[in-house]
Design a binder for these strands. Sequence first.
DNA 1: GTCGTTATATATCGAAACGCTATATATCTT
DNA 2: AAGATATATAGCGTTTCGATATATAACGAC
Lengths: 182, 182
Amino acid sequence: MMIDVKTLCLGVLSRGDASGYEIRKEFEEGPLSHFSDAGFGSIYPALRRLTEDGHIVMLPHSGDGRPDKKLYRITPAGRHALYQALTRAPAPDKLRSDLMFILTFGHLLPPRHLDRIISDRISDYRRLIATMEAQENQVARTPGESFVEGMGLAIYRAVASYLEDHRHELVAAALMENQVAE
Amino acid sequence: MMIDVKTLCLGVLSRGDASGYEIRKEFEEGPLSHFSDAGFGSIYPALRRLTEDGHIVMLPHSGDGRPDKKLYRITPAGRHALYQALTRAPAPDKLRSDLMFILTFGHLLPPRHLDRIISDRISDYRRLIATMEAQENQVARTPGESFVEGMGLAIYRAVASYLEDHRHELVAAALMENQVAE
DNA sequence: GTCGTTATATATCGAAACGCTATATATCTT
DNA sequence: AAGATATATAGCGTTTCGATATATAACGAC
């Protein structure tokens, strides 16, 4: 059974107080962004449930900045719940990939479309890899964060390289299928 | 916006008639298993919606075997809907990984637990890679299927190799953290 | 200073999916 | 024959998704 959004939020809050919006930002840009995702529609209900569970508390308003901003802090009970989750056996990873689904039928598609989506995805990954490499020694990271950042990089490199090395095979199959159809 | 379970089912049915259970089996064992997943709780409602949409039809009972078995067939309208989805730009891939979440905090965990979950995951991947490699020339595949199978293999190899090459770094950090705590 | 744009911030909603359970039939093994 | 496993459909409460709504603060251009 996979780690749920409540636990993901506890993970973010274990590193410091945060608002719902800031937690969402962590999922988009922080160390968690490579392997987690959660939208507002799940974060806010999760924060409410965590508050009811006593795993987090909402801090009193600081009086400066945004009057509507709610800051949350993890409690000792929340740290314990997080630790329980971290010392359990991990569920298998789950990947959802439109690209791979589309490429399964790639030989049946217009070669131009096929070539475009592969090119675009290679560009996306190469850009992301360059950004991560540029940040590699600029950002303070824990050993764990460095480890998974490296792991994410290894995955992105493998995918980009595979697409670069093998794209011509699939595009050729699409061209041949195209000729057979004519 | 990601490809939904309806479209995934159309993809399976585009290769031949199938029951709900058989579609689920494709997500578990077939070419789709590396990058898609859908449980019965989403497949059956999706099949019902696809039937209402006119994208699939339920075949008359064959009279032999299971009396409760419902076989579905894709319609021309269903093929068109699938084609529309396949010629759209793919959404970014989404990975959910308990392992990477746990490893983010790995240096804070008991080194024995850490070592165990990494070892287990390496074994899982090495076993999966061996199975895929053994099947590589035994199973009839379309060019698209071969392409994404190779892509899946490249990812699994990258992850297994990274874990093998770098595990000692994280375990050492956990041991040091352990000593500091004592 | 004003106005428009962008960022920050919380919350909600309908639809879809998740994870599990229930029930039933067929097939296989002992 | 009995028990275990595989095949088969379906449902259910909970969670998540993806989008939208509303509001305030900050920023940039003029």
